[in-house]
Design a protein around this nucleic acid. Structure first.
Lengths: 163, 163
DNA sequence: GTTTAGTTGACTAATTTGTTCGGGTATACG
DNA sequence: CGTATACCCGAACAAATTAGTCAACTAAAC
């Protein structure tokens, strides 16, 4: 389980697809324009997402991508695993040359921590992120039109410093 | 919050220090030898760990590094943040040029997910990992001394598929 | 004063990231 | 038909990051 900008771009793009697939497939050109990600990079990412069975593609005019499953059935972990090919921080690579106890430490350790992080991100569905995003968009719209009802905390979503 | 092999090396090294600091500071040379991490790379990592206040250094003969706090008070998140400098996947960099609603999406989204992952890893202390490691070492030692019982596979800890 | 070991900085190879380019192929539509 | 759309594919590429090397320095123990 690696966590880099690559996986983040993939998740972002998937959210974009989820939010715009109400009427037909979403083209990568549209995602590229909206999310400011280069088209070719998106093609690479969606090639992996497609081969992993997370999205389906429709070729030809009017084509594009749509989610292969309901957004509630797609987890962040699946997306990240699909695009961020796994790498292990072990020297032995989990092979037979770990006679010495110590050399196995990294491997066992990270396998465990991997599990934790993986299962955590498996519990976060695309639907949740979309809902979160929709909510913010709604708040923003309400602020724009200055119709914030009493009792609501406008834009009070605490965006923490980038960690 | 990035999650790469760099942070994993740092955590591995910190566990090694935690496990061997019973009698005096631990030298990086020893960590390097045990964990098969290059000495100079460790020097870079521990430079950051020291500047982040996670370890203290003792110079001269008999010197080395030791944890600045009890291992139960040191979280994985702190270690990773110390060595894996933050990067944001946003185009606007959280600046003022995100007039368009869409361009802020990545930023808000990952800030939230960052929080989740960060708080999760903040809850994992070095002490926990050490305990987990000690437990495995004890099992391994038992296997070593008592001629492995039938059915056990030495050094074949059920390593989950690398994610 | 010599040895140990941290401290620093510069430098390098390998890998990853993100992009650009240049071609393909399937299909809707006129 | 043909053509435009949009997926598909691969190669080449600069930039950043990762991992490691080298060399010189400082503080402290003996």
């Amino acid at each position: 389980m690696r966590l880099t900008t690559k996986g983040r771009f993939a998740v972002t793009a998937m959210i974009d697809v989820a939010m715009h697939s109400t009427n037909g497939p979403v083209t990568l050109a549209a995602v590229s324009e909206r999310q400011r990600i280069s088209l070719s990079y998106l093609e690479q990412l969606f090639g992996k997402l497609r081969r992993s069975g997370l999205v389906d593609s429709v070729r030809g005019p009017g084509g594009g991508y749509h989610l292969a499953r309901a957004s509630s059935q797609l987890s962040v972990a699946q997306i990240i695993v699909a695009v961020d090919e796994p790498i292990d921080a072990t020297q032995c690579g989990g092979l037979e040359n770990c006679h010495d106890d110590r050399r196995c430490m990294t491997h066992e350790l990270w396998a465990g921590l991997n599990n934790h992080i993986f299962s955590f991100l498996s519990g976060v569905s695309l639907a949740q992120l979309v809902a979160q995003q929709d909510q913010k968009a709604a708040i923003a719209a309400r602020i724009d039109t200055r119709q914030a009802p009493a009792g609501t905390t406008p834009c009070k979503v605490p965006v923490t410093a980038a960690v």
